[in-house]
């Protein structure tokens, strides 16, 4: 396998919790490869290891055994702070529960990753405004999460994820808390980012119509990849 060409490769990745009899394997020897610019949906029943895989992909977690490589780097064997640096430079996160800082304005939330990158205040503000514009939230810069709807909060979270111009966006059930209309708005936004910025997206979902937006669906069962299907591109008229 020419792993150098891939952004993400799992090579017999295991993630195990507990000891002896009580040991459970959240991931049981997963092989996987994702290229730059892909839009991947990860599906599967609850407890099948989707979030565990996503956390490893986002360099938040490390495999118990096997190799995870990210941008050709053996990310599974890096220490905490180096993984933090990788995340800050190349990964954006979107969570089901938005995970914005409470009582903090949208602009300040979006600026947050830039603070850890040491970007000057003025440039931070400019970049945050651009990111908020990209997610269609102009005019809401000074609203706190409590003053925003769920869909708007998730847009702020997406703006925060893309403000650093990351290579990869990982999203764990990003529409899990949203109604149908809001779900489609968010998915259209992600699709646009994937197309226009070439942003690689890996997204966990258990809704089939959400997965429809992705170009590829990987299905997990019991910590293993059960199926991996690329969507057939409909020929443009």
């Amino acid at each position: 396998m020419a792993s150098g060409a891939h952004l993400i490769t799992f090579d017999k990745v295991w993630k195990s919790y507990g000891q002896g009899e009580a040991q459970i394997h959240a991931l049981a020897g997963v092989d996987l490869a994702i290229k730059r610019g892909e839009f991947v949906a990860i599906m599967g029943p609850s407890g099948s290891g989707k979030s565990t895989a996503l956390n490893i992909i986002g360099c938040l977690d490390t495999p118990t055994a096997g190799t995870y490589s990210f941008m050709g780097i053996d990310a599974g064997r890096l220490d905490r702070n180096r993984r933090a640096m990788l995340r800050n430079l190349y990964v954006g996160f979107v969570f089901q529960g938005y995970n914005l800082l409470a009582r903090t304005t949208a602009a300040e939330n979006v600026e947050l990753p830039l603070i850890y990158r040491g970007v000057a205040a003025r440039e931070r503000r400019d970049l945050a405004m651009q990111a908020l514009a990209q997610v269609g939230l102009v005019g809401r810069e000074h609203h706190t999460p409590a003053e925003l709807s769920g869909g708007q909060q998730q847009r702020v979270a997406i703006a925060r994820a893309i403000v650093t111009r990351p290579t990869l966006l990982v999203a764990d059930e990003p529409t899990g808390n949203l109604d149908t209309a809001r779900t489609h708005e968010i998915m259209e936004l992600l699709t646009k980012l994937n197309k226009e910025l070439g942003l690689t997206i890996t997204m966990v979902t258990h809704e089939a119509d959400v997965a429809e937006y992705a170009k590829r669906t990987i299905r997990f069962v019991d910590g293993r990849v059960a199926s991996d299907t690329a969507k057939l591109e409909v020929a443009q008229p």
Binding site: N88, L101, P113, Y116
Partner: peptide, 16 residues
Amino acid sequence: TREIGIRLAIGAHEKH
């Protein structure tokens, strides 16, 4: 704790 989690996720180091 959650705030710390968010900060760590988006790239804060231990020292931050």
